[in-house]
């Protein structure tokens, strides 16, 4: 089996809203795979379908070679969807022991301790989760997803609510899961820089469909753009049309380097005041913006 997840023409509608619109996706075994998208792109809906929490309106999905809902296949997968919550009266250790039992395993102390240590909760093992911060809950959620030592782990916003050192730790953990433990990691995150650093491959979703998919290094290898801080922005967009994307008080122009001076002249002739013009290399953020036509803010791309 070379793929851990496959979907074909997957659709999910909520009333008149099409959360997924014929999504076909193949996620290969191994490495870290990122799923990106703005609000309402369908990321969470996709994950929920893959976990069997909701049923698709149409289409097919398989996980670890079995159809969604296949328990044998499901037991080879771990997941953390959004900020996890637990019975507040339980300690972190008890949560993992409980989930071990629920998944058909003995609550093996060395295994529980190992995963608590891996996520940085070794010293909080016997604390009740009612006192945990969001970041600690996220860490425990990752440990809970890993307690069965799955071949595939799905993480929805694993760094949400974490402080910068925590984010760094989580990034290192995710990489080590893929590189050392051989676990395929599929994650969604609104922190595109983090995704670019940790993921090998990404799919960008927009309006329930995949608009771009590929290796991160391929996606970011091309697409150098001219970043223009100017006003009024409307006049620049009128001139650039589809080649221009608004980013805050600037415009990113997708033009070849040799057309840059001509573009600047044309803008000046139209009465546009240009404060700054510089060439910027393509990063995942700019790929994301150009594919989805959105300006990145944490709020705009946080939930799917």
């Amino acid at each position: 089996m070379t793929h851990v997840i496959e979907t074909r023409d997957l659709a999910k509608t909520y009333g008149a809203v099409r959360a997924l619109d014929g999504l076909s996706l193949t996620i290969p075994r191994g490495g870290v795979y990122g799923v990106l998208g703005p609000n309402g792109a369908g990321k969470s809906t996709l994950f929920r379908i893959l976990l069997g929490l909701i049923r698709p309106t149409a289409g097919e999905a398989s996980v670890m070679g079995g159809p969604v809902g296949d328990i044998a296949a499901g037991r080879r997968m771990g997941a953390m969807i959004e900020t996890p919550r637990y019975p507040p009266y339980m300690t972190a250790r008890q949560v993992l022991e409980w989930l071990s039992l629920a998944h058909g395993l003995r609550p093996d102390k060395p295994r529980v301790d190992r995963w608590l240590d891996r996520v940085g909760l070794g010293t909080a093992a016997n604390r009740r989760v009612r006192g945990f911060s969001v970041g600690m809950l996220q860490r425990l959620g990752v440990a809970a997803a890993l307690i069965t030592e799955p071949e595939l782990i799905i993480l929805d916003e694993p760094t949400s609510g974490m402080d910068p050192p925590g984010i760094q730790d989580m990034r290192a953990l995710i990489r080590s899961l893929a590189d050392t433990d051989g676990i395929t990691v599929v994650l969604a995150s609104h922190q595109l820089l983090e995704v670019q650093r940790v993921c090998d491959r990404v799919a960008i979703l927009n309006k329930g469909q995949i608009v771009r998919e590929g290796l991160v290094r391929d996606l970011t290898a091309s697409g150098e753009r001219l970043r223009l801080s100017l006003s009024p922005i409307g006049a620049a967009i009128d001139l650039l049309g589809d080649r221009g994307v608004v980013e805050g008080d600037a415009v990113l122009a997708s033009v070849p380097r040799n057309e840059g001076p001509a573009l600047i002249r044309a803008l000046v002739e139209r009465g546009v005041d240009i404060d700054e013009a510089r060439w910027v290399g393509a990063d995942l953020e700019s790929v994301f913006m150009s594919e989805t036509g959105t300006v990145q803010t944490p709020e705009s791309i946080h939930a799917g």
Binding site: L51, L53, P87, G104, T148
Partner: peptide, 17 residues
């Protein structure tokens, strides 16, 4: 109702019928 109250269905439902 505990699994609704603490939103823990999503932790256990993928691995059992």
């Amino acid at each position: 109702a505990g699994d609704y109250r603490w939103e823990t269905w999503r932790l256990i439902s993928a691995r059992n019928i």
